[in-house]
Design a protein around this nucleic acid. Structure first.
Lengths: 337, 337
DNA sequence: TTGAAAGCGCTAACAG
DNA sequence: CTGTTAGCGCTTTCAA
């Protein structure tokens, strides 16, 4: 027998579909006797109510759409995992899109989300094209950004204070006695966090009485490879930097590998500090000191806030939620002298 | 105005809903003039057809459910990414569940998948409880396993030949002149691949004229931490092994870190070989030699086969799909003498 | 080419 | 406590 429907159950139990619906939804007002009989038929038939039909009449899908820039990045995967955890606890399921630099795909998925009538959308991607800006602005579905804050738009972000986090990281290096502190930043074009972290780095140096030297400043794409390549360039600068601050752990790990491959040592020759607090920090040797984001919290807070937005709660956030960053010292930085 | 519906479009365009439906679905038999007018109204209203209503009448959801044991594992994240890529290209979306050891959650999600009427289910989790076995067996939705092959069940798996892969890895070490070859395996209880790899290791040693020594054999849980801990135990065995084969890159990386922390060197003191071919192999130093699975292919083949299953294609697989493993030599193993 | 009407599987008034 | 009835938003015969 093909997928039984509520009518089949009703017929077989000798009751109306309403009654079946009632036991399905655990309502009162059903005699125990009937309830038991209906339940028996349900089990026997292996009946399972159609979420589709339910959604249609309830006007509620319990679905959340998530857009991730790259699933294979440990940072994003960890946030996603935390998001999934939190959402599922409230009975929500996730529709996941991994865009992989493909802007068309992002657009396509946003439209799918719209058609699917997801109740909310979480975006972890920063470089929004005009088309996309346009689309999400007239979407009429709550949107929230997690771990990023794209410029010029009206939605809430759950982030850390990138400026101060970067500032604190650079200050830490300066406090260790370093004066030739290199910087491997992120995308500067349209990316707020990239700029904030860059500014934090600059100001920290200035406040430490260190002249900012553009030769020590490079920009990558957050991935290990770019950390490696930019580090290679930095090693050619003379005098060589004694410390480097990379704005992702992935880039920091890449930088460490480059240093290693050039027969130099971390932290003896060069100190390295990362950013994010991904699992990588404990997986590399020396273990990587990092300015950490509260990744798990970030996922949780994102979902909780999105729910508030969906429900139109009073406590729904009106502005960005800033989570605390934290410097975690491991073994990749040393004090000079 | 709240979410316009097809009726609104029809009214505003002065046509029937049928006509709107026709232009929506790009059918012939609509006069260009009307088509244009309807399209204009659609754009103006920002109308987007309800996937819910469509699914209900078409009896087709374009949804696939995926169960991942742990999203934060690079191996699984990469397969998932490849799955998403392939599925979205065919217009399918993914419902993702990260079970995190939580068997109840797996059961709960399987039921959600059932209610959601997903068209197919991909499972990357190996330790199926009886309840779950039971459920998926009477599910009447195509199920396919990716990268795992749980014992005793009727569904297809997309995997490599674990036995021969492990055999080849151990043989490689033996060929390098090693005779004290340790093994850090996976779960042996209910997990087929764990047993196959173990057997491959044993037989490779025997075929190489090396006596198998149980002191050199440990079992972990595929994660870095367990690789670290098991390695620590192995270092206490006397005489110390000169090589270790871990059945995941994560465990191999953990083992390398342990060796490093004990002031020993890879590969000078101990050679290490991993399994999987995750990104980690290039991220650690020395770079990790690994018996690699074709991760991207695995995702692609999984989805393609699932589609064949869904469509009841002739070419739908009748038995497990075995993909080719490949030894990738990097810098973590050395020849003795 | 176009439209009227039935129905996908379920819930929710409203009666009884 | 239980059943009747009317949709939820769309597609799809069937006629016109």
């Amino acid at each position: 027998m093909k997928k039984p429907k509520i009518k089949d159950v009703a017929k077989m139990a000798g009751v109306s579909t309403t009654t079946v619906s009632r036991v399905l939804n655990g309502e009162r007002y059903v005699k125990d006797e009937l309830k038991a009989k209906v339940q028996r038929v349900i089990d026997e038939l292996g009946y399972s109510p159609s979420h589709i039909a339910r959604s249609l009449v309830r006007q509620k899908t319990n679905l959340i759409g998530v857009i991730v820039p790259d699933l294979t990045s440990s940072f994003h995967a960890t946030i996603l995992s935390s998001i999934e955890q939190t959402a599922s606890r409230s009975g929500y399921s996730l529709l996941v899109c991994d865009i992989h630099e493909d802007t068309d795909k992002e657009l396509q998925y946003l439209n799918i989300f719209k058609e699917m009538r997801v109740e909310g959308i979480i975006i972890m991607h920063e470089k929004l094209s005009d088309k996309i800006q346009n689309l999400i602005n007239k979407l009429d579905i709550p949107v929230i950004f997690s771990s990023v804050r794209p410029p010029d738009q009206k939605f809430i972000s759950v982030i850390i204070d990138d400026y101060h986090a970067a500032y604190d990281a650079a200050r830490y290096l300066a406090g260790l006695g370093h004066t030739r502190i290199a910087f491997i930043g992120g995308d500067m074009r349209d990316v707020t966090s990239g700029q904030s972290r860059y500014l934090g780095y600059r100001n920290a140096l200035e406040d430490s009485g260190i002249a900012v030297d553009d030769d020590y400043i490079r920009f990558g794409d957050y991935k290990p490879r770019s950390g490696y390549d930019r580090m290679k360039e930095l090693l050619d600068v003379s005098p060589r930097p004694t410390a480097v601050f990379a704005v992702s752990d992935d880039m920091a790990a890449g930088a460490m590998n480059c240093i290693h491959d050039q027969k130099l040592s971390v932290p003896e020759d060069i100190s390295v500090i990362g950013f994010d607090g991904s699992q990588l920090t404990e997986l590399v040797r020396p273990r990587l000191s990092s300015m950490e984001q509260p990744i798990e919290d970030m996922g949780r807070v994102t979902v909780d806030s999105l729910f508030d937005l969906i429900q139109g709660n009073e406590k729904a956030p009106k502005e960005d939620l800033i989570l605390q960053h934290q410097l975690v010292v491991r073994d990749s930085c040393r004090a000079l002298q």
